[in-house]
């Protein structure tokens, strides 16, 4: 029952997002083809998240957030992309070393310092294929 309620909450949240930015548009805001190609070459995955919480503002806020996320275990170095405009964060990770959920939790532990959390939107496991994440 609790699982069903949580799932319903996720669906509602995604619908709410669609009122402002389509999920795919959020993904587009951090999509970096070079990151994607590099990750897929190494059979890594690229995950896209909605950022929940009050984002820091000011110059360098996005870079600071990216640096924080990149310091999490399992996240590919140089792969984090952040869009403060669309509240989106993406990174590449090695699915052999950690699951999407584990990678997300590792990043969230870092972001907890800023009272931020992540909601998975899509994951790219192969080229031209954005899938709903299975947690």
């Amino acid at each position: 029952m609790r699982v069903a309620a949580a799932a319903a909450g996720l669906v509602l949240a995604l619908q709410a997002l669609a009122c402002g930015y389509c999920v795919e548009d959020k993904i587009a805001s951090t999509y970096d083809h070079a990151v994607v190609m590099r990750a897929l070459e190494h059979r890594h995955h690229v995950a896209f998240f909605h950022i929940e919480g009050v984002l820091p503002s000011g110059e360098g806020a996005g870079h600071a957030l990216a640096a924080l996320a990149e310091s999490a275990a399992g996240v590919d170095k140089g792969s984090v992309r952040v869009s403060l405009d669309t509240l989106t964060l993406s990174f590449a990770f090695d699915p052999q070393r950690s699951s999407l959920g584990a990678a997300q939790r590792a990043v969230e532990r870092k972001l907890a310092l800023k009272k931020l959390s992540l909601m998975p939107l899509r994951v790219m496991e192969r080229a031209a294929d954005l899938k709903m994440p299975k947690n």
Binding site: C22, E24, D25, I27, A128, D129
Partner: peptide
């Protein structure tokens, strides 16, 4: 993505962004 002003459709469905190769 593609946004047709001539159409009456849900933007979230039809006007989604697609990645290279999609």
């Amino acid at each position: 993505s593609m946004d047709f002003h001539a159409a009456m459709v849900s933007p979230q469905d039809k006007y989604r962004s697609i990645a290279p190769g999609q």
